[in-house]
Each structure stands twice: as structure tokens, then as C-alpha cells.
Lab assay of single mutants.
Amino acid sequence: MASQGTKRSYEQMETDGERQNATEIRASVGKMIDGIGRFYIQMCTELKLSDYEGRLIQNSLTIERMVLSAFDERRNKYLEEHPSAGKDPKKTGGPIYKRVDRKWMRELVLYDKEEIRRIWRQANNGDDATAGLTHMMIWHSNLNDTTYQRTRALVRTGMDPRMCSLMQGSTLPRRSGAAGAAVKGVGTMVMELIRMIKRGINDRNFWRGENGRKTRSAYERMCNILKGKFQTAAQRAMMDQVRESRNPGNAEIEDLIFLARSALILRGSVAHKSCLPACVYGPAVASGYDFEKEGYSLVGIDPFKLLQNSQVYSLIRPNENPAHKSQLVWMACNSAAFEDLRVLSFIRGTKVSPRGKLSTRGVQIASNENMDAMESSTLELRSRYWAIRTRSGGNTNQQRASAGQISVQPAFSVQRNLPFDKPTIMAAFTGNTEGRTSDMRAEIIRMMEGAKPEEMSFQGRGVFELSDERAANPIVPSFDMSNEGSYFFGDNAEEYDN
């Protein structure tokens, strides 16, 4: 993207840094990872977990959730003011799984939030270390993106479920800051804005008074975040219109849905970061690795190297396929839920299948599930090659597409044709070009129609051997075009429920 120079890199967003050079960025990201790792080690000690239990991804998720809940100030305040039966607002906890007599047992633990905050700050040299908290939120978000298709949420806001490739980060909490905003897809931002506008339509006082002023500035800020994701002048001009509207209503909703559809071809720039579970960072720190000293990046080879040398386990339900569970977590670790499966298959070195073909449910185990038949197995999170994460949407291309997802959002900077089903997408653009945004709409449609099938995206960008740390010898991959490109292809993934 041309304006790259004016933006802070995501590592800076990730670490609240002012302008830093590459070495400083690597050190501050490393410091953040160190903090998460030290916190995780301490929690495993508190909970008396064995090494194996500490490497269980379900335990990692519970521990991450506990610290996120302990620092969720708004919710904590709300819980104190609106006490609900049987919930102690000062405590947080969740299921911890232990191996007892050759069987997995679930144990519900409860801790004072104050105590968890103390352990977290102690692991982070006394700081609140917001960057580390956001990092864990993005890992949870990436896992949700890989596990669930947001059909219901899309339909509720009037969008087409086939636009799911635009929904990265749709389950990120509001408090995820600049680093969170960077990884949100165009569809996620559109959905947040539509929800806001709908509230304004239904509630006369939404934009009024002292609160209304705050609401208005939040609305304009979200519009600017979305505008910054678009790469064409016409899309940005249309966002200006939406932002400046005196009284946002149905016309703005129409414009936003139009823009979301246009992003299936004229893709937005959305950041991709490899955020790993805390149970990967903990053992690495415990083994003596100093992330701050060595430096770390979320968008280069580092996460690949770390996963190459990590042992992570997962509980497996009786009829689940461990290899499929591994694929789910591998995609989440690489922030690749909406990437082209052919690119992923090449990088991973084994075939990556669409969601609907995987015999696996989510990673988390519900409290009512029976533990008797639970097994555990090693997650295979290694890769054959590594590639640089991208934040450009890439230019655009036609490809055989599917009944489910009709476009992709690249996660890796790797040369390819970008699949999208042009006739299906263009069919949504018939007729409606009147109104105050008509010239911009016409211009956007013209650009979409001009998108050429034979153009290559990320020209000359390749993948790298894991021994090639400096990215000196790019390998331009070859793809098996007979395979499906979309992950949520004609899909039956479970729906995400809060």
C-alpha cells in the first residue's frame, strides 16, 4: 500500500510504541512475548500442572481467558453494579484439565481477579502490559475465525453469508486497541457500523446529549479505520460520505453494504499476525530463551520457528480426527482463516481442507461434555516452508469459486491468482447506482469489472525454506488448481455463540 510509510507498523501498534527502528520493534515485541511466557509459567505453578498438562491447549485457553477477564475493567465495573446470582464479580476462573488415573478430569478453578492481575503485572515488570493482553485477544479471535462461520451475524446486519472472507476479527472485544483495529476485516468494521446506525434509528437519543457526542466521535473513528483499509480513492470518498452524514440511517447502511461487497474484489488491507497460545510461549521462556534479547516478529519467520520446536497437546472428542484438529489450530496460529487453501497447503506441506470436510468441533470443551471418553493427542503445528504475512489485500483475480465463501483475504505475501467468483459478486451490483453516491458507485463498479483474471497478485513473492531466515531465496510455489480455494466452501461450520 502506498501510504505504508505514514502508518505505524503493526509491531508498533502491538507494543504501543512511538516510531521505533526494526531492532527496537523486535525487542519490544519480544518483551511482550516474554511477559506472556513468564505469566503462563507462574500460572502453571499456581495450578500445580504437570509439564504435559501445561502444554494442553484447553488449559492455555482457560488461563488466557482468566487474565483477560481480570483486566476487563468495563465488564468488571458492570458486574459490580449489576450483581447477578451466583456470579462473584471479583473472581474469575474456568475449567482446568488434569490427568488422573490414566483419565482426563475437569476441575473448575476460581481465583481472585486481583490475584491474577498481581501475577500478570509481576510477570511483566510491574506494568499492565496491555500489548500482551491484546495479543491474547487476537489469538482467540484468530481461533474463532478458523472455527466458526459468522453466517447468522452477517444475515442479521443485512449482509450476504458468502462475504465471510471479510469477517476477520469479528469476535475481537471493543477494547483491543490499535492492534485489534489493524486485524479487523472490512466486513467486521461494516458490521460494527451498521449495528451502531441501527441503534440510532431505533433509539432517538442515541446521537443526542453528552453521551451522543461520545457516540458520534466513536462512529467517526470507526469510519476512519474502515476508510484506511480501502485502497481505492472511490471507496475512500464513499467512506467520507458515510462519516460526514448528519443523521446516519438506511442510506448509510446501503452504502456500507455496497462497500463491503466491493471489497470482495477491490480488497481492503487487513493486517495478519501470528499470535500463538500462551502454552507455546511459556515452555520456550522456561527453556531459557530470551525473546527480548533475541527479538521477535509476528509477521516473519519467528512464529514458524517457534511452532517448529513446540509440543502442544489437545483434548480430542471420541469421533474427532486429531489431524483435522491440528489443521484448525495451525490455521489459527498463522492467522489464515480466509487465505486461499492452495497457498496454505503449499506452505504447510500437507493438504489443507475446507472447514466442512474437517471432523472436528471447536477447541474448547463445553462444561456439560462427558470427560470419560476424552483422549488427548499432539497437535501437528509444523510447516514445510515459511512466508511473510501481508497486510495488503493483493490485486484481484477471477477463479472458480464456491457456493460458500466467494473470495479470499490473503494472509501471506505469496504470488498467486486470487480466487473470487466474479459473476456471483457482480450480480449483486445491478441497477442500484442512484442517489448521492452514484458517481462513486459507478466508478467502483467500473474498477471491479476491469479486474483481470490473468493478473498475478504479489508478483514474484515466494515462500522460503525454514533454514532461509533472511528470506534470501524465494520459492514461487505451484498450486494444484483442481483443489478448492475457499475454506468455508459450501460450508456447515458451527455458528459462533458468545
Results as ranks from 00 to 15, higher is better:
residue 3 S to M: 12
residue 3 S to L: 15
residue 9 S to K: 00
residue 10 Y to D: 11
residue 16 D to R: 10
residue 21 N to T: 15
residue 29 V to G: 01
residue 30 G to H: 01
residue 31 K to F: 05
residue 34 D to R: 07
residue 40 Y to L: 05
residue 43 M to N: 15
residue 44 C to I: 14
residue 50 S to E: 12
residue 53 E to K: 10
residue 59 N to G: 14
residue 62 T to F: 03
residue 63 I to E: 03
residue 63 I to D: 15
residue 70 A to V: 04
residue 73 E to K: 11
residue 75 R to H: 07
residue 81 E to D: 13
residue 85 A to E: 03
residue 88 D to F: 01
residue 92 T to W: 07
residue 92 T to M: 10
residue 93 G to L: 08
residue 97 Y to V: 08
residue 98 K to H: 13
residue 98 K to T: 13
residue 101 D to M: 09
residue 103 K to H: 12
residue 104 W to A: 07
residue 105 M to L: 14
residue 107 E to T: 05
residue 108 L to F: 08
residue 109 V to D: 06
residue 113 K to V: 01
residue 113 K to T: 06
residue 115 E to F: 10
residue 116 I to E: 05
residue 120 W to E: 11
residue 121 R to P: 00
residue 122 Q to D: 00
residue 126 G to K: 13
residue 127 D to G: 11
residue 128 D to F: 14
residue 130 T to A: 11
residue 134 T to A: 13
residue 135 H to N: 10
residue 139 W to I: 09
residue 144 N to M: 14
residue 145 D to S: 02
residue 148 Y to C: 09
residue 151 T to Q: 06
residue 169 G to C: 10
residue 171 T to Q: 10
residue 177 G to E: 11
residue 185 G to K: 05
residue 187 G to P: 08
residue 191 M to G: 04
residue 200 G to W: 09
residue 201 I to D: 03
residue 204 R to E: 04
residue 204 R to T: 04
residue 208 R to N: 06
residue 210 E to P: 01
residue 214 K to H: 15
residue 215 T to K: 13
residue 216 R to A: 08
residue 216 R to P: 03
residue 218 A to L: 10
residue 218 A to P: 09
residue 222 M to V: 03
residue 226 L to V: 12
residue 227 K to H: 09
residue 231 Q to F: 01
residue 236 R to Q: 08
residue 238 M to A: 15
residue 243 R to K: 15
residue 243 R to L: 03
residue 251 A to R: 08
residue 252 E to H: 07
residue 254 E to A: 09
residue 256 L to D: 06
residue 258 F to V: 07
residue 270 V to R: 07
residue 274 S to G: 11
residue 277 P to N: 08
residue 278 A to G: 15
residue 282 G to N: 05
residue 296 Y to Q: 07
residue 298 L to Y: 04
residue 306 L to H: 04
residue 324 H to I: 04
residue 324 H to R: 05
residue 327 Q to E: 11
residue 353 S to R: 15
residue 356 G to E: 10
residue 358 L to V: 12
residue 360 T to G: 05
residue 362 G to C: 01
residue 370 N to G: 02
residue 376 S to N: 14
residue 379 L to I: 13
residue 385 Y to W: 04
residue 385 Y to K: 00
residue 388 I to M: 01
residue 391 R to G: 07
residue 394 G to L: 00
residue 406 I to V: 15
residue 408 V to S: 11
residue 411 A to V: 14
residue 412 F to P: 00
residue 412 F to V: 07
residue 416 R to Y: 01
residue 417 N to I: 14
residue 418 L to N: 04
residue 419 P to V: 15
residue 421 D to C: 13
residue 428 A to T: 15
residue 431 G to P: 06
residue 434 E to I: 10
residue 436 R to I: 06
residue 436 R to F: 04
residue 437 T to M: 01
residue 441 R to Y: 13
residue 447 M to R: 13
residue 447 M to A: 06
residue 451 A to L: 14
residue 453 P to S: 11
residue 453 P to A: 08
residue 454 E to R: 00
residue 458 F to L: 12
residue 461 R to H: 02
residue 465 E to W: 10
residue 466 L to P: 12
residue 471 A to F: 00
residue 472 A to C: 14
residue 475 I to T: 10
residue 478 S to C: 07
residue 491 D to R: 05
residue 496 Y to E: 02
residue 498 N to V: 05
residue 498 N to T: 14
